[in-house]
Design a protein around this nucleic acid. Structure first.
Lengths: 259, 259
DNA sequence: GAAACGAATATCGTTGACGATTATGAGTTG
DNA sequence: CAACTCATAATCGTCAACGATATTCGTTTC
């Protein structure tokens, strides 16, 4: 997670527009194994699964068989296994030895830990950001807030979820520490997993007003209040999570938004 | 990094005692490829490299050719590549496409970010620990402090480095959040890399007195002072890093403490 | 004598196949 | 009819080999 994540609600990123995936015929490769461009393909697959989880097309617990992914993306198992390993390290999937990969399903205890870790991290991030922000940073944040206000009450949940996510990531960008940003990105993705698990209708909203207050405190240079407001904000978010479950009968290809 | 790291200054963990690694004859495997026990082997290799980096037998910039590791550990390249990928994600090695793997060498800017991230994290960790510690936790920390006092001024740097490391990890354990602990573990390893880079003689000591004060504040329940002391402590540690370089002419096998 | 060119070597990326392990379903029996 | 057993299928872990790429070293030329 070196660079910021681009949100796209329309499935795979930068796939050839006329691509038609069919069994055992996907990505013919012309017989020549082109080496060296593997990173793009790998990043593509990773991003597709990542976005699908973020947009809740891939529910926690969904199995991800390697042969199925091979045919869907037209690559060999080695590539798939590499991507799955990255996804496991980012806690997006769980790799059970000899039993295959599934989308991670955080337990209630893990949920508590994830939110606690996120509070610990993001409170420090907003403190750094409150100390070192520029006028341009504040303008950008205000712009995001306006956009956020527009999509409030949008019936399509992933849109404003992406919007809220972008706000938090932007604050991390203001703080200017890519390490902290990568940790936050990982934790926010796991929060999305939790929302997918426990919020079928998807209404664990970031309160818009709280976001606004955070920027206000940052602008006033009130570091302590910015910290406190972020802490309250994240605690309220955690409290909004109720506990129930949902299922789905879509195919893997549909959930990945392919073909 | 699911569980806490055990420090061992004596090289590879749990290798067969009578094992004699020789070229093209290592780990005969009896012709049958035993599958399923791969996780142990994989963890073994990871831990060996990890410890070697921690103990500064593997200097930053050292190349890790896949064929060499295959012969040293008697496994196929697939296993080595999997371990190298994990090490890359933990920022211990850097994987350059088509150019091989090297032990990561943080730049000065990355160094600043690593220390900032560690301060941000560990200040929150000590706050949580100061709120939720038990009497047993304090006793354990005091015990570590005593051991730390014993090995102070020990000429063998890795011993007290491991000791100081254990102290910080124990505080994270008291806080009881494995996610924060894993992040801290990663950052402390990267700090070890930095020490290996910029401190040839290895004297970036954790001040023993500061550790003691942190425990004192925790015991008194003075959360704010514990936070502040940890922040000062880590800032002092960063300030102790000066900038010079060292090299080594050991073989890879020697640095890994094998054969 | 130094720099540029080219061949040889070393190393990496990818693939396909083989054996091992787990899940599934048919068949049998109490 | 339910529960158990066994055979079949699906999936995973590992390996060896092939082509591609980067590095190195010897040779040539100015």
């Amino acid at each position: 997670m070196k660079q910021s994540i681009e949100m796209s609600d329309e499935g795979p990123v930068a796939t050839s527009p006329r691509r038609r995936v069919r069994k055992a015929e996907a990505a013919p490769n012309l017989g020549v194994p082109v080496a060296g461009h593997g990173i793009d393909v790998e990043q593509n697959i990773y991003q597709t699964v990542f976005d699908s989880v973020l947009n809740q097309r891939l529910a926690p617990g969904t199995k991800l068989p390697e042969p199925a992914l091979c045919e869907l993306f037209g690559v060999s198992r080695a590539v798939i296994r590499k991507v799955l390993q990255r996804l496991e390290h980012d806690r997006i999937v769980e790799l059970r030895p000899n039993k295959g990969a599934v989308i991670a399903a955080p337990t209630p205890e893990e949920t508590r830990q994830i939110f606690e870790a996120r509070r610990a991290l993001e409170v420090s991030i907003v403190e750094i950001a409150a100390r070192c922000h520029t006028a341009q940073d504040l303008a950008d944040l205000r712009h995001l807030l306006a956009h956020e206000h527009e999509v409030t009450h949008n019936p399509y949940q992933p849109t404003w979820a992406a919007c809220a996510r972008e706000f938090h990531l932007r604050i991390a960008a203001v703080a200017g520490n890519p390490i902290l940003t990568s940790y936050l990105t990982e934790l926010m993705t796991r929060c999305s997993l939790i929302v997918a698990l426990y919020q079928p209708i998807g209404n664990a909203a970031c309160e818009h007003a709280e976001h606004g207050r955070i920027v206000d405190y940052m602008e006033k240079g009130d570091v302590a209040s910015a910290r406190a407001e972020m802490g309250r904000h994240l605690r309220a978010l955690e409290d909004n999570i109720s506990l129930d479950r949902s299922g789905s009968t879509q195919t893997l290809a549909q959930m990945l938004n392919l073909g």
